[in-house]
Structure formats: C-alpha cells, structure tokens
C-alpha cells in the first residue's frame, strides 16, 4: 500500500489574494481542518474550476502506483489502476524548499514549498507534518472535492 506523505481536507478561503494575474491559473488560499495547515496553491482553474468555500481533500503522495513502487518518471502506457483514479485533479512536481517561518511565536511553523511545473504550492503548519518530506522529492498532488 502506498504511504501518503500528507493527507487532509481543506476549505478554500480566498481566490487570488493579490488580484487575478493570469487567465487560466488562480492562486487559492485554503485552510485545513485536521492539522490546521495553511496552503497556497496555483490551480489551473480553466480545467478544474474552484470557488471560495469549496471543500476538498488534498493528498501528497510520492507515487501514483497503488502498491507503492516508486515513480520512474517515465510515461506509462495504458489505463493502469492508480491512486489518481479516486481524484479529480492530479499534479506532478517537486519539493524545492523547506523553511522555518520567521516569527517570534512559541510554536514555530514550517513552510513547505513545491513546484508543479511552475504551479506553486506553499504549505504552512506544524513541523511534525513535514516529517516524511525531503528536499528535491518528487510529489503527486491529488485533489478531490468533497
């Protein structure tokens, strides 16, 4: 069974916090229910429209294969069964930065950055949630509206 790196349900709080800059891509802000994570994510809204108040499940996985075999990076032919089947929107990318939030709060928060071919994700929350994440790790981001 595939070991998921992160799994939670988010509520979309804001769309395009700095104004709409791109036609097809929107930056969403979302807050998770379970781990109280804050997330910014660029989503191609042309093919997967999202609106404020939408509730969706988000999963970060190292591979799409159900048995947990690592991702080869090569294209696989054919409609093999995969993790993606249960989700509506799947992106592939890379974790490129981990940093500690610069604040004087007692509970320091960790920021995790990933890029899905230029569509960025920033996940902020408690360090314990970043336990399985490594720098330069390949990631699949899977979203399903609930």
């Amino acid at each position: 069974m595939v070991e998921l790196l992160f799994e939670d349900i988010f509520i979309l709080t804001r769309l395009d916090p700095d104004g709409k800059k791109f036609d097809k891509v929107s930056r969403i802000e979302a807050q998770s229910e379970q781990f109280d994570m804050y997330m910014q994510l660029d989503v191609n809204t042309e093919i997967y429209p999202l609106h404020v108040g939408d509730k969706f499940a988000m999963v970060l996985a190292p591979t799409l294969s159900l048995d947990g075999t690592p991702d080869t990076g090569y294209f696989m032919q054919g409609g093999r069964r995969s993790l993606a089947d249960k989700f509506e929107y799947v992106m592939h990318g890379k974790l490129y930065k981990v940093s500690a939030e610069a604040s004087a709060e007692p509970n320091v928060k960790v920021e995790i950055y990933a890029s899905f071919g230029g569509l960025l994700m920033m996940l902020k929350g408690d360090p314990s949630n970043a336990a399985h994440l490594e720098m330069d790790q390949r990631l699949f981001l899977l979203i399903r509206k609930v």
Partner: peptide, 18 residues
C-alpha cells in the same frame, strides 16, 4: 526526454516552464 506532465488529471498538460 519528455518530462512527466505537470497536470496529470483531468487531462495531461505540460507547462511552458517544463
């Protein structure tokens, strides 16, 4: 080497950055 598409679902899409 063709990279893995940035968006796999609902359709395969590559970005210009790729």
């Amino acid at each position: 080497d063709l990279p893995t598409p940035a968006i796999i679902k609902p359709i395969e899409l590559w970005t210009g950055k790729q």
